[in-house]
Design a protein around this nucleic acid. Structure first.
Length: 457
DNA sequence: GCATGATCATGC
DNA sequence: GCATGATCATGC
């Protein structure tokens, strides 16, 4: 063995900081680089002088250390994020359920990782990418507690014969991402005859972002849980406990208690209020460690006195050019629901809606939600495919009085999700690929679907 | 009463 | 200027 101790290995690893892949490579493979995994292979072979190993054992087997070479990127606002999730080993559905978290394939591979970060930049040639930082990662107790639960969530689906229903958004930090040569890569599962998509354990991009920021920017996130708390309770339970004392209070009262200005027009008021109620000094929920690492977004829901919801829930606007180019599993829509979780903050009005009358809602509860895989694969996919078809064939725009009707999949499409306009004003239009102008459009979840989610269980 | 297109308001 | 959460308006 070349490295007898971890210190020796890390000393060598750190010497790579600042070097480019071109400088390190002595196999010539960097020139015709095809797969992203190759960068890791180059480090393994040219830098550490190891043979490439694709077994379930860690790369530096005698030290129990797995090598991971992974990119980060600089965002428009100057912060840094992981460019992608960190993919570990493929899950063998036939075996994994027989293991415990401690003996799991995930833990035997990833308990100790030598992570080498390089900066991704679309304007730079791959051989000029530079190793920025090399460090040894061992998970904190808090993170392991969450990952243990994540692992159990995944294994429970296998045990229930539901491996084909696994979704990345089911879990918080550790997820099961699809991995295969193509979409038809499937595997047997032990308790169902339905073949399940091949998946690998991975650390979510949001989790990796948290990890990377610790090393790149000394920026520090605030935690809402106490040490050890996450091993006994789920985040859902902890949040409910924290918010419970505030249920039944009106928003203006809550604002007063939290010492912030009540201004219903301010859309950051609710998120702001929630961070205050959680006892966190940050204004931005993305600065709360548990939300940030698990990729959880806030969404407020206002219910009528009878529990109904008046308005559909809007999501990001559609970029039609991208829509025509993207593949389903890399699409914006897919990512929005397969990788993100949502914390619904539920409010209720006590008075009936009346045009022009301002009402103050009461805080009713929370619900941590992600879209089930079945819905993602059916209704959500249909929406994407139909929107694409209409855009490709050319949206039919029919002016009628002071509006313009279109044939995009609207709110009667499938009872789950639809496409509808969302713009600042009548001039806020966007160019379609065929040269027509259309009022900006966004993705929406149907209000009846949201209501169903809130009422279930 | 709902579907559906349009627009308001605010912060970054 | 724009994204986005929130809401309005009207015709069937």
């Amino acid at each position: 063995m070349l490295y007898d101790t971890i210190d020796e290995l890390m000393e060598k690893a750190r010497l790579a900081e600042g070097k480019t892949f071109g400088e390190i490579d002595n196999t010539g493979r960097i020139k015709n680089l095809k797969s992203k995994g190759t960068l890791g292979n180059i480090i393994e072979e040219s830098y550490f002088g190891y043979e490439i190993n694709s077994t379930s054992k860690p790369d530096f087997e005698n030290l129990g250390v797995e090598l991971k070479v992974t990119p980060f990127k600089r965002n428009k606002n100057g912060t840094y994020s992981a460019k992608e999730r960190l993919v570990l080993n493929i899950i063998d559905y036939m075996k994994e359920y027989k293991l415990t978290f401690e003996t799991s394939s995930f833990m035997s591979k990833a308990a100790k990782m030598l992570i080498m970060l390089y900066k991704h930049d679309p304007d730079i040639q791959i051989n000029d990418y530079r190793i920025f930082k090399a460090f040894l990662n061992e998970f904190s107790e808090e993170d392991l507690a969450v990952m243990r639960r994540d692992w159990e969530t995944i294994v429970t689906k296998i045990r229930n014969g539901e491996a084909h229903l696994i979704s990345e958004a089911d879990t918080m930090y550790l997820s099961a991402c699809t991995k295969g040569v193509n979409k038809t890569s499937v595997r047997q599962q032990p308790f169902s005859s339905i073949e399940a998509k091949q998946r690998a354990f991975s650390l979510k991009a949001s989790y990796m972002t948290g990890l990377i920021r610790k090393y790149i920017t000394p920026e520090h996130m605030e935690s809402i849980t106490k040490p050890g708390e996450l091993s006994d309770k789920t985040l859902d339970e902890i949040l409910n406990e924290r918010f419970m004392p505030h249920y039944g209070k009106s928003v203006d009262v809550l604002c007063k208690e939290a010492g912030i200005k009540y201004n219903p027009g301010n859309k950051s008021m609710i998120p702001h209020l929630m961070t205050k109620l959680l006892g966190v000094s940050k204004n931005d929920i993305d600065q709360i460690e548990e939300f940030s690492k698990a990729n959880i977004k806030f969404k407020t829901i206002r219910r009528e006195p009878d529990g109904k919801i008046r308005e559909h829930m809007s999501f990001t606007n559609i970029d039609f050019d991208t829509l025509l180019e993207e593949d389903w599993e890399d699409s914006e829509l897919f990512n929005m629901f397969s990788e993100q979780k949502y914390l619904f903050l539920v409010f209720r009005f006590t008075e009936k809606y009346q045009k022009g009358v301002k009402r103050i809602p009461y805080f009713e509860g929370i619900k941590l939600w992600n879209m089930p895989q079945g819905t993602i694969e059916n209704e959500l996919y249909e929406l994407w495919a139909e929107t694409r078809r209409v855009v490709r064939e050319g949206v039919e725009l029919v002016p009628k009085s002071n509006r313009v009707n279109n044939n995009l999949p609207g709110s009667k499409f499938n009872r789950i999700c639809h496409v509808r306009s969302k713009a600042q004003d009548g001039d806020d239009k966007i160019l379609l690929p065929d040269g027509q102008w259309i009022t900006k459009q966004g993705y929406w979840l149907d209000k009846d679907y949201i209501q169903m989610i809130l009422d279930e269980r």
